[in-house]
Design a protein around this nucleic acid. Structure first.
Lengths: 201, 201
DNA sequence: TGCGAATGTGACACTGAGTGTCACGTTAGC
DNA sequence: GCTAACGTGACACTCAGTGTCACATTCGCA
């Protein structure tokens, strides 16, 4: 019965400030990584460039990789929510394809920035690996959303998981080609093509 | 014109000995990891347990993770070869499914060992991540094999890549369920179910 | 307005992974 | 037997990531 149970204080001021600092740190980090290469930049470099201590930087981002990959935070929840919002009668593939529009949106909002980020991630083995790992974590959320759509929440079948995974593959492959084309190819077309290759083959 | 161009000396004795040492090191490492947990075991522990120096251990396996994941070496090449060996008329899905029998075989040869390895990998974030990364590297080889089957070697389409990726997902999801069932469920059935969820949905 | 607690930050020490280098001993080829 | 290549061990080094501590600021509350 101590005052331990206070997860959210009355004021959100701190949280807002914290988010702003986080964004600024991510920005500085991205600039350095792009200029010098991810591996060449040390945590000390980042801290110095951002004007904070190494400790502080690591408090905002647990790892060097996270400073870049934070850009993808929330994609899983948003996609899962979009999936749940699709008409219940819609088949899984269509629902997944439409849910991914939520992700694609972000790329259309800032094509140049998205392209630069994607390119950095794909070209840096450490980032690529960590991104793969994080994205792998999206799978359960999507599979669960599919199970809910099927009217059996909590009962995630092999099928739900496989389809969720395949949909993420489609996204990745489409992004690979989009990046390789320097953003000239249409992301929507690429994603449609990827899904088509899956459903009708 | 110096004697630099001699990639393979007359005798293979060294290579054979090297492979044996490598296998022994992997075995010792696996025992330690299983007993104490991957993260608790340091490179010094491994070296001491194997009776070699830390340097030597790192020469055989570039990273701690590789000492475990070396078990999967060659799976990509074998699967791609199996894919190329399938009848040209066979559709991609069937060919992929059959090619994965090559991988499944290994699990039937030593179910207990495979189960232990798979479990260790899935339960250890660092191993899971590294495995994901390595397996991601199989994709191009499989996609290229599909392109060759299509009579267009070198021309890897979005479809080839997506189907290769999806097939690997099927393998992973099937293995997840197999591991979760302590090896009681049939791996072949699980893999069939995964592919079925993909092709007919 | 002032007090106390929580919180953000910096400084520091520490562990452990991975890299590179060098010297030594063994082994293989001639 | 001589020589060159190779495997190994012993270091030293960099850097990521963790944990701890003290200090300062800020917020909640009286």
């Amino acid at each position: 019965m101590t005052g331990a149970a206070r997860p959210r204080p009355p004021t959100h001021t701190r949280d807002i400030a914290r988010a702003a600092v986080r964004a600024e740190l991510a920005h500085v980090a991205f600039e350095l990584f792009s200029r010098d290469g991810f591996d060449k930049v040390t945590l000390d470099d980042l801290a110095a460039a951002a004007g904070v201590s190494r400790s502080t930087f690591l408090r905002y981002f647990g790892t060097k990789e996270d400073a870049v990959l934070a850009a993808y935070d929330g994609h899983d929840r948003r996609t899962a929510d979009a999936l749940r919002a699709r008409p219940p009668a819609e088949d899984d593939w269509t629902a997944l394809r439409r849910a991914l529009d939520t992700v694609i949106e972000r790329y259309h909002e800032d094509p140049a920035g998205s392209l630069a980020t994607t390119r950095l991630v794909r070209e840096t083995p450490a980032l690529c690996a960590r991104h793969l790992e994080k994205q792998h974590g999206w799978r359960p959320a999507l599979a669960e959303a599919l199970a809910e759509r099927a009217g059996t929440p909590g009962d995630v079948t092999v099928g739900h998981t496989v389809r969720a995974a395949a949909a993420l593959d489609c996204l990745n492959v489409a992004l690979d080609h989009w990046t390789a084309s320097d953003g000239r190819l249409d992301l929507v077309d690429l994603l449609d093509e990827a899904f088509a290759a899956l459903t009708g083959a």
